[in-house]
Design a protein around this nucleic acid. Structure first.
Lengths: 178, 178
DNA sequence: CTGAACATGTAACACGTTACATGATTGA
DNA sequence: TCAATCATGTAACGTGTTACATGTTCAG
């Protein structure tokens, strides 16, 4: 939220739309959370109500303290390593469902990755055509990560499905020979 | 937990050690959570106390219902897409700290990825030498994902740092020409 | 005049974390 | 005997989600 407000004042409702539209893929947030958090940030002096509009609209702006906190978080607080992937957790126990179903699971992962990749390509087309320089640069860098991640996932899932398939045939061959 | 118990009976303490050692990178869990969850699973009939040992040790085993639930989760419940990456979120607001600090951030990401990659390579050395066939296959597939992910992150972060650096020089050149 | 969009807020619930709290075995 | 390890459990707290609850403005 400090990041979004650093680009200019906005209401809780505005921020909500931004989260839903552009930030949804990296940091989903709900309406309740947003309003509650705005209250907290205001109490801490990191944001302030700059103007009030119709329908009870409150336009928030970031304060100097808020900007300092944002900069601090950006470069000094170490990013957390992305742990906890249920997609990967399942892989550990895939022997419980047999090679055939396991291969199916991995193939579906590959398909999903292709689908996500295509969606991101669509978004990039759209983003390239607008926005200011800084946002275009960093937005594009983030998008590129999405593209590389989904491509890697597709490749890996296909490779893994192949390995499971090879084991499947090996076993079948042995069974036939016995 | 059902997955771990599907390989054989274990106590809460045993499971805790497994989470700390091998599952830590895909699904960290705390001691409190484990014991609470074992109680819940037992109440639902997905696990049962198979034996009691010294020091109040309770050995749990998975029930048929538990096994069915595990298989159901493995192949029928769609994996959640890994959202919410604060590492990527920061990228969106990197223009707030200037090109120089932004480049530093991305370079640190690259270094971190290299470090993680090396660690995983070490783990693979260790894992290859032991374990049964099924666990070796799927454990290795999971490890391979970690290797590909960290490699992709290194490449991306270096590429991104390069792009930011290029912008930096361009701006400097313009400033010098004015 | 009416429905969509704008706009904000609270309450109940679930889950995860940290800290608290206790006790039994066993090997050196 | 004493420290490490084994072993289990509860309580307080923070954060996020879903659902509830309400009211305003504006375009057609």
């Amino acid at each position: 939220m400090l990041g979004l407000l650093s680009a200019g004042p906005a209401s809780g409702y505005d921020l909500l739309k931004t989260f839903e539209l552009s930030l949804e893929n990296v940091w989903p947030a709900t309406q309740s959370q947003l309003y509650a958090e705005l209250g907290r940030l205001a109490k801490e002096g990191l944001v302030r109500v700059a103007a009030e509009g119709p329908r009870g609209r409150k336009e928030y702006e970031i304060t100097e303290e808020g900007r300092a906190e944002l900069r601090h978080w950006l470069v000094e607080v170490p990013p957390t390593l992305t742990r906890r992937s249920d997609m990967l957790l399942r892989v550990f126990f895939l022997d419980q469902v047999g090679a055939d179903a396991a291969r199916g699971y991995l193939e579906r992962l590959a398909e999903r990755a292709v689908h996500e990749h295509d969606q991101l390509r669509g978004i990039r087309e759209f983003v390239i055509s607008q926005g200011d320089d800084a946002l275009r640069l960093y937005g594009d860098i983030a998008l590129e990560w999405g593209l590389r991640l989904t491509a890697a996932q597709r490749d890996w899932a296909e490779w893994a499905a192949g390995r499971v398939g090879a084991l499947e045939h090996e076993k079948a061959g042995q069974a036939g020979a016995e």
